[in-house]
Design a protein around this nucleic acid. Structure first.
Length: 802
RNA sequence: GCCGGUGUGGCGGAAUUGGCAGACGCACUUGACUCAAAAUCAAGCGGCUAAUAACCGUGCCGGUUCGAGUCCGGCCACCGGCACCA
């Protein structure tokens, strides 16, 4: 009898051996086929590891371990995304330097990850708060600055009243701060911006080059929000000036019955003398400005507006004189801040026209514009539209854009919803922006030799209500000289957002110690792109988009060798509490992974998280389910007592073994871990049914299981006296011919209902199969047979009438 | 409102993509072992049934097909994202 399975000792033992043997170190051996697997590096929070972390980490660990055994040079690194507000807030509250807080948190996270037995190459560990790392984050910023893609501008920003910091649009969710839930207000502030919009087209188009799961691509496309249309000029009656609008439906130009300006449109000021009801319009503008984001959303259905008395526009295609309104349903921040309204074919314009009694002119037949706007672009035909009449929407669009262009009345135009990236944060615990402001020279980059520009020590990390970073109080640090003219200058005191360090970290893993550049170009050429990147859906329009942007910029600068950073992107589902709700302290349903490791072992936790359900869907925790997985590992452990000497597979299980190798190998690659584990459970059950197994049988089982449960299998490998280490062995092969059963049970249906079964040889002819099937259900064949179907290896269906 | 996802036993979930619905696991029931319990092992386990008979059964309604969880049309519910983007 073998001794009891004791994960505590086994797991520590093997973790030490793997460390000592540098088992998972990825060499820059360019002769071997490579695979670069990436998981999102964690933010080392004070709470420690969450049970959500091991799900993606174990999944990619499985793929990495399997591919190593298949001969790949696998890079599977880990690091720390350690700048960020929670650390800073904790530091303020407890009067500890954020550096110390970070160090402690990293140590704890690392110990926890280590205890889970991941095959990370710890020699390539990176930390975004390390000056040797953020040296290169700053360097990338300087390249962006030099190419005009980083600029400073005074603009209204999203100001979180809780965190006292500016936020990117992507960080504001439903009018409140994504992180702390405090209300977000608009505040004028001078901000560093990154021109991500310059890459909007490439960020959409190049999605065709990569293998991302569809929902990621769809979400990125929607977020970037590209639309094709035209800008059209409307003459303002009696003036030189024209009113320029953006429309995606220039084909409806004959149906324009009014125009709308955004309340902030400059023409309101410019033509204030002509506008007879100027006071009324200013009052409307002020009322609109006072609306909170929440109110604007809530009131979206109920349109408001004021007609400008004294200004009208002329329709460029038919000379009609059109009133101009002001309404807050038109945004200054998109297009030209003004629209042509076609109530017959736009829902919003239709609502507005109905409310204010404006005319509705149908120009596309196909609907009933008295009832609702007709917005279908597939089926309608143009009417009441001069030279466009009779055309389809598509034809009309082409024709009108050509017409406008030729006559100087408008131009084709593409617009995006994507805005530039607000890159300043008024906080301490981030990368200093390596720029100084000189009275004479303006904003000047600090010389690259001076990088890294390190964070100075400050007395207080407290953020301020004035919107200034804590760094602003460090006068001896702030006051410096201009690298350009030598005159007095001030350092930028804003820091970078947390997204900065994570936008390029996968490059640094390739060559983490390099002092001369981001990473050695030869090494990047070998390792890039990342072959497989798994991460959370919540990062789709943030981190994933930002890092694609930076990578594309670096590609254009010749720094990196590939246009896209990640070849394949997959995403895992969330782990929910036992009650099916999101885990949180306030709900009291948090599971601590340390407790599971202590009670059941890391291998059990890993197995359970992979067995819990489909990898891409959310799944609720179940403590009983954890026990079930421990039981499975116990059964694998105890099989050692049933092992007999012998080279080949147990004859009666040979087919099953080949099938299992095939199934598990495929399932790991397709992230169907739950069914792969189920297949191994079935095989274990078969071994117990037979009552014995050969060494060869056992070898296959523990090799297949190794990526999921690496410690127990490595221990069993040693106990069985197999040569070398399990992690160094090769992945088992299957013989396709041997995965096929010789005799197959086939269902026999009569009129589509199963009425019997027959055992048939796999290669039976259709005629013989049907004959055997008829015999099996002879008693039921009372009518006239009209059809006989045989699906090889599956079923026979006899269709009869009467 | 728009976009995406999901809906299958008491529960988590399978189903080779149009071919025997419920693999695997949990929970439960019964039996063995035990003074007893736990653990372990064995058997059972969708509903209706005396039944291993028949029938019903994959959110709802309809359709295509010899055959539908899977395809088509029309709904409903829940989850996630976006939200006056012209």
């Amino acid at each position: 009898m073998s001794e009891a399975y004791n994960p505590k000792t086994i797991e520590k033992k093997w973790q030490k051996i793997w460390d000592d043997e540098r088992a998972f170190h990825a060499e820059n051996d360019y002769t071997k086929p490579k695979m670069y697997n990436l998981v999102e590096f964690p933010y080392p929070s004070g709470q420690g590891l969450h049970v959500g972390h091991p799900r993606p980490y174990t999944a990619m660990d499985i793929v990495s371990r399997k591919r190593r055994m298949q001969g790949y040079n696998v890079l599977f690194p880990m690091g720390w995304d350690a700048f960020g507000l929670p650390t800073e807030n904790y530091a303020i509250k407890n009067h500890i330097h954020p550096k110390i807080v970070t160090k402690n948190n990293v140590a704890r996270f690392k110990a926890q990850l280590h205890a889970l037995g991941y095959s990370f190459d710890w020699e390539r560990e990176v930390n975004t708060t390390d000056p040797n790392y953020y040296h290169w984050t700053q360097w990338i910023f300087l390249q962006l600055f030099k190419k005009g893609l980083a600029y400073k501008t005074e603009m209204p920003i999203n100001w979180c009243t809780g965190c006292k910091v500016g936020l990117a649009n992507e960080e504001v969710v439903g009018g409140v701060c994504e992180r702390c839930g405090s209300p977000v207000i608009q505040k004028m502030q001078s901000q560093w911006m990154l021109k991500i919009t310059a890459y909007a087209d490439k960020l959409i188009d190049d999605l065709d080059l990569v293998d991302y799961i569809d929902r990621v691509k769809v979400q990125q496309r929607n977020w970037i929000g590209r639309s094709h249309g035209a800008e059209v000029d409307f003459q303002i009656k009696g003036k030189e000036e024209k009113l320029r609008v953006y429309t995606t439906r220039p084909d409806t130009l004959f149906g324009v019955t009014y125009m709308v300006l955004s309340p902030e449109h400059p023409y309101i000021e410019q033509f204030k003398d002509e506008i007879k009801n100027y006071d009324e319009i200013v009052a409307y503008r002020e009322a609109a400005a006072r609306k909170s984001d929440f109110e604007r959303t809530e009131l979206a259905k109920d349109k408001t507006g004021v007609c400008i008395d004294g200004l009208t526009a002329i329709d460029p295609v038919n000379g009609a004189e059109i009133p101009i309104w002001v309404s807050d349903y038109v945004l200054m921040s998109y297009g030209t801040g003004a629209i042509m309204a076609v109530p017959a074919h736009d829902d919003r314009d239709w609502e507005f026209a109905k409310k204010f009694g404006l005319p509705i002119i149908e120009v596309i037949a196909g609907g009933n514009v008295d009832e609702a706007a007709f917005t279908d672009v597939q089926t309608g035909t143009l009417v009441n539209s001069g030279f466009l009449t009779g055309m389809s929407v598509e034809e009309a669009k082409k024709a009108i854009i050509e017409f406008l262009d030729k006559n100087g009345l408008g131009t084709p135009k593409t617009n995006f919803k994507l805005r530039d990236w607000v890159f300043s944060r008024q906080r301490y615990w981030g990368e200093p922006i390596p720029i100084v402001k000189c009275e004479k020279c303006g904003y000047v980059a600090i010389p690259e030799e001076e990088l890294p520009l390190e964070l100075p020590e400050v007395e207080s990390y407290m953020p301020t209500d004035t919107g200034e970073s804590p760094l602003a109080h460090m006068t001896e640090w702030v006051n410096t000289t201009c690298p350009c003219c030598g005159g007095p200058a001030k350092r930028e005191t804003d820091t970078m957002p947390q997204w900065a360090g994570s936008s390029w970290y996968f490059l640094r893993y390739i060559d983490p110690q390099n002092d001369h550049c981001i990473a050695d170009p030869e090494a990047m050429k070998y390792w890039l792109p990342v072959d497989w990147y798994n991460g959370g859906m919540e990062h789709t329009t943030l981190h994933l988009l930002y890092s694609r942007f930076w990578h594309k910029f670096l590609y254009d600068q010749g720094v990196v060798p590939t246009p896209e950073p990640y070849q394949k992107r997959t995403s895992h589902g969330m782990i929910l509490g036992e009650n099916g709700e999101k885990m949180s302290k306030s709900r009291g349903n948090v599971i601590n992974p340390d407790d599971i490791v202590n009670e059941f072992g890391a291998d059990t936790l890993r197995t359970y998280e992979m067995f819990i359900g489909a990898f891409d869907l959310a799944a609720a925790w179940s403590q009983d389910g954890v026990k079930g997985c421990r039981k499975f590992l116990e059964r694998v452990w105890k099989l050692q007592d049933l092992v007999t000497e012998g080279d080949g597979y147990t004859p009666e299980l040979e087919t099953k073994i080949h099938q299992t190798i095939k199934k598990v190998s495929n399932d790991y690659e397709e992230m169907k871990y739950n069914t792969g584990i189920a297949a191994m459970m079935t095989l274990v059950n078969e071994f117990y049914k037979v009552g014995k197994l050969t060494k060869a049988d056992y070898k296959v089982l523990i090799t297949l299981l190794n990526p999921v449960a690496p410690h127990i299998t490595e221990e069993l490998w040693e106990k069985m006296g197999f040569a070398g280490r399990l992690y160094q062995t090769t992945w088992p092969e299957f013989d396709e011919a041997k995965t096929v059963e010789k005799m197959i049970e086939v269902a026999v249906q009569v009129n589509g209902k199963v009425r019997g079964k027959v055992m048939l040889p796999v290669d039976v002819s259709k005629e013989d199969a049907i004959a055997a099937g008829k015999e099996a259900v002879a008693a039921r064949l009372t009518g006239t047979i009209v059809k006989e179907i045989y699906v090889p290896g599956r079923l026979i269906n006899i269709v009869q009438k009467g």
